[in-house]
Design a protein around this nucleic acid. Structure first.
Lengths: 290, 290
DNA sequence: TTGCTCCTCACGTCACGTGAGGTGGC
DNA sequence: TTGCTCCTCACGTCACGTGAGGTGGC
C-alpha cells in the first residue's frame, strides 16, 4: 500500500495539469481518494493512477469527457467499449472527410493564384506549343451571360477532379454579341469509367482537345474589353503568314476568385489561337473578324 | 438601387441564421447599412450580400472569425489573401494528420477486439496450417517481466505499420522461469527499405517466420496459468505421433488493452506448436517439458 | 385581438486556462 | 519571514444556439 499523492505529485505522475485534475474532479471523472476536510487538499491513490491512464488514452482518441464518464462506468475492458469506440470512429471519419475537402479547396485556391502570378509576366504575342489535354465542356449558342451558370453546372457535375484554369472555346467566325457559339470547359484529370459516364449522361462532353502550335496573348482587364487582344493576335498571324484554326480559346487565368469576386480590372485572360502555315496567302486571315 | 432587407429576409438570401447575423454584427464582421433608431431593427443592403458571401466562403474553409475580419479589412481579391490561406492550410493539415492518427488507432483497437471475439470460440486442440509472415522482434534471455518493456520498444520503433496480434517465440527446451530464452514480436506489413534499416539499427530483427502444420490451443486466463495448455499440446503431439519444432509460439489475442488493462482472467492466448511427422517413435516428444 | 417579425439580455456549450486573492505547513 | 503548495471563485475561449420576456406594425 503506497502513500497517497498530493495533486502536484499526482499531476507529475499522470502528466495531467493540476487545473485539469481539478476539472476532472468537478466533472466526477477522477475523484481523489481523500479530501482533507480542513484544507480541501486532494489526495490520490494508486487506483486513481490507473483510472487516469484510461482517461488519458480515451482523450488521445478525442473522446468527449461525457462519453469517457460513461465508458468508465460501463466498461472494464477494451472489448466492453467497442460500441463507444465505433461511434467515436464514425465521428472522427466524418470530421476527417470534411477536413480533406477543406484541404483540397485550399490547395486549389492557392495553386490557382500562384499560377496566375507566374503567367502574368509576358504581355506580348508569344508563339508556343500547346499540349493536348482532357476537358469537360458544354457547348451552347447564345449570350455570354450564361457562362457563369454553365461553369456552375460543370463544377457540380465534376466535383473535385479539376486540374488547371477553366477556359472557353469560341467557334464564331465573326463577332456575334448575343448569339455566340461557345463552349466553356474545365480541364480535368483522367476519370474512372463510371464517373465519366455519369458526367456524359448530364449532357457534358468529355474529350481530349488537340494541342499544337499557337499564338497567345495575355489580356489584363474585364472580359468585355478583350477585343484589342483578338485584333493583335489576328494581326500577328497575318504578319507571320499563318492561318488561324477555329475555335479560338480563352483561358481564365485570373477571374472571379473562389472567395472574392475581385476587381475585373485585375482579371487575367490568355487568348490562344492555334495556327498553321498558310498555303494560300489570300486565306491567311479568317473571313469574319472583330 | 434595391430595397434594404430586414434581418429575416437577409437571412434567407444569405443562408445565415438570424442569430448568426446578429453575432456577426456584434463582432463587427457584417454591419447593417441602417439600424432603425426607434426599434433597433437591422436593415442590410446589396453590398452586405457580397460581404456575406465572402464570409461564408471563408467559413467553409474553417477560417476563424478573427482572421476573417482581418482578411476582409486587408483583401479585395483571392490573391491578396494568399498568406492567410497558406497559414490556414497549415492549420488544417496539422489537424488532419492528428485525426488520421486517431483514426488508425481506433481501427486497430476495434479490429483487434473483433478478432479476439472470433478466435475465442474453439477451446480444444486444433490442427491447422499456419502461413508465414513478417515480424519485428527482439530476442532476449531472462525473466518474462521484461516483456512489457520490449513491446514498448518495438511499438515505438515501428510506429503504425502493425498488422495483427503480437506474439512471442519461446526457445526454451525446458521450463526456465527466471532465465528464459524468448522473443516478443509484432507482425508487421512490408516495410520500405529506409524504415527497415532504421528499425534494424535499433537492434530489432525484421524477418519472415516460416509457417507450416501446427497444433494450437486457446488458453483463457492469466499468463502464469498457461502450463496446462502446453501440457495438453505436448500430449496431443505424442498421441498423433508428431515432433514439436522449437520455438513454440504464443499469440496474445487478448491481453492488456490499448485503453483498459482489463482483467487477466479474461485474457486470451493462442499457443501454437509447429509439428512434423515423427520418424523415430522415441523422439516424438522433445526432451524438456513442463 | 392574434400572429408575425424583430429586439435585448442572460446563460449554455466544451475542456479547460488564466489570473486574483487567500491559506497552511515547513 | 519567505517560498512553496494548495485552495476557491470568477472570467475567458469559440461561434454561435437557446430560451425568456418584451415591442411594434399589420
Amino acid at each position: 500500500v503506497s502513500r497517497l499523492l498530493s495533486i502536484g505529485e499526482f499531476s507529475k505522475v499522470t502528466h495531467l495539469t493540476v487545473k485539469t485534475l481539478r476539472h476532472y474532479h468537478e466533472r466526477g471523472l477522477l475523484i481523489p481518494a481523500r479530501i482533507d476536510a480542513q484544507t480541501g487538499y486532494r489526495y490520490y491513490d494508486d487506483c486513481a493512477i490507473e483510472r487516469a491512464a484510461v482517461i488519458a488514452a480515451l482523450k488521445d482518441l478525442e473522446v468527449p469527457l461525457d462519453d469517457i464518464l460513461e465508458i468508465l462506468a460501463a466498461c472494464s475492458d477494451d472489448d466492453d467499449a467497442l460500441e463507444f469506440l465505433e461511434r467515436q470512429r464514425e465521428r472522427i471519419r466524418e470530421r476527417l472527410e470534411k477536413l480533406k475537402r477543406v484541404n483540397t479547396s485550399l490547395d486549389r485556391i492557392i495553386t490557382t493564384q500562384r499560377e496566375a502570378r507566374n503567367l502574368m509576366i509576358h504581355q506580348e504575342v508569344v508563339e508556343q506549343q500547346i499540349s493536348s489535354f482532357l476537358i469537360a465542356a458544354i457547348r451552347v449558342r447564345g449570350s455570354f451571360d450564361q457562362v457563369g451558370d454553365i461553369y456552375k453546372r460543370l463544377g457540380r457535375a465534376i466535383g473535385f477532379g479539376l486540374s488547371g484554369s477553366p477556359g472557353m472555346l469560341v467557334y464564331d467566325e465573326e463577332y456575334r454579341p448575343g448569339d455566340s457559339d461557345f463552349e466553356p470547359y474545365f480541364p480535368i484529370k483522367d476519370l474512372k469509367e463510371a464517373k465519366r459516364e455519369k458526367i456524359i449522361a448530364q449532357g457534358i462532353s468529355v474529350r481530349e482537345i488537340a494541342g499544337g502550335r499557337a499564338l497567345t496573348l495575355i489580356h489584363c482587364g474585364p472580359y468585355d474589353k478583350v477585343s484589342p487582344t483578338y485584333a493583335k493576335l489576328f494581326q500577328a498571324a497575318r504578319t507571320r503568314n499563318l492561318n488561324v484554326r477555329l475555335p479560338t480559346r480563352e483561358v481564365y487565368i485570373k477571374g472571379p476568385g473562389m472567395i472574392f469576386k475581385g476587381n475585373p480590372e485585375n482579371y487575367v485572360t490568355e487568348v490562344q489561337m492555334l495556327v498553321e502555315e498558310a498555303r494560300d496567302e489570300a486565306t491567311a486571315v479568317p473571313p469574319g473578324q472583330l
